[in-house]
Design a protein around this nucleic acid. Structure first.
Length: 206
DNA sequence: TATACGATCACCT
DNA sequence: GGTGATCGTATAC
């Protein structure tokens, strides 16, 4: 089990995002460690990306997007949910990957992940589900107190590689969710997810 | 100071 | 299919 180093995040965001699929998101809280295997992410890159919060420039809110790669950017959305991002690229270039969903890591040993989902469905109620950015942060007790945390060097929240590999053909892409206001950027296929969609948020209708 | 709205979710018909 | 919850942020005044 190897914690992802800063060099992993200090690369093009569109390379980092799909490579985060299959990695473990780990959260240590009150002496217990909770983990999720990343199944769905979205890339946000640069001031020219109208869906990126930094598209209106550097403000107190977006400051962390300009920080060192490997920094956590956590913000409050709709007054009640939090979203977790990992900052990418070089310091000064505002870019990050939104972690949208995780699967229970113990699904691994089962041949069919759909079978595993059925098997464990009663253990993962809507309140403990890690599918969806708001639910993920609720399940892992992630909030704005984690904004600015260095994920490469702390023991509360980090990302690790345990050797699990996602075959490239099992990765699907789509436009990002909930950014219809972003003009042409709304069509960019910057959402990456496991194509079985077992632990992935449902695609919007339409 | 006031207002509009959002990288969501749960619950309703 | 639709809508309310709930509040920080950006923008307009």
């Amino acid at each position: 089990m190897r914690r992802l180093p800063r060099s992993f995040f200090a690369r093009p965001t569109l390379d980092v995002a799909p490579e985060l699929l299959g990695k473990l998101l780990l959260r240590r809280c009150h002496g217990k460690t909770v983990a999720g295997r990343i199944t769905e992410v979205e890339a946000y890159r640069g001031e020219d990306d109208r869906a990126c919060h930094a598209s209106r420039g550097r403000t107190p809110r977006t400051e962390m997007l300009y920080a060192r790669p490997g920094t956590a950017y956590v913000y409050l959305i709709y007054g009640m949910y939090h979203c977790l991002n990992v900052v990418t690229e070089q310091e000064g270039l505002p870019a990050a990957v939104l972690i949208r969903s995780c699967a229970p890591p113990d699904d691994d040993g089962v041949a069919s992940r759909k079978q595993a989902a059925r098997k464990t469905s009663t253990l993962h109620s809507p309140r403990t589900s890690m599918v969806g950015p708001g639910r993920l942060c609720r399940a892992l007790a992630i909030s704005r107190v984690h904004n600015g945390l260095d994920l490469t060097n702390n023991d509360d929240l980090w990302i690790a590689d345990d050797g699990y590999r996602v075959p490239p053909r099992d990765i699907a892409t789509s436009p990002r969710i909930g950014i219809d206001y972003a003009g042409a950027c709304a069509a960019w296929p910057w959402r990456f997810f496991l194509s079985d969609r077992v632990h992935v948020s449902p695609a919007p209708r339409g």
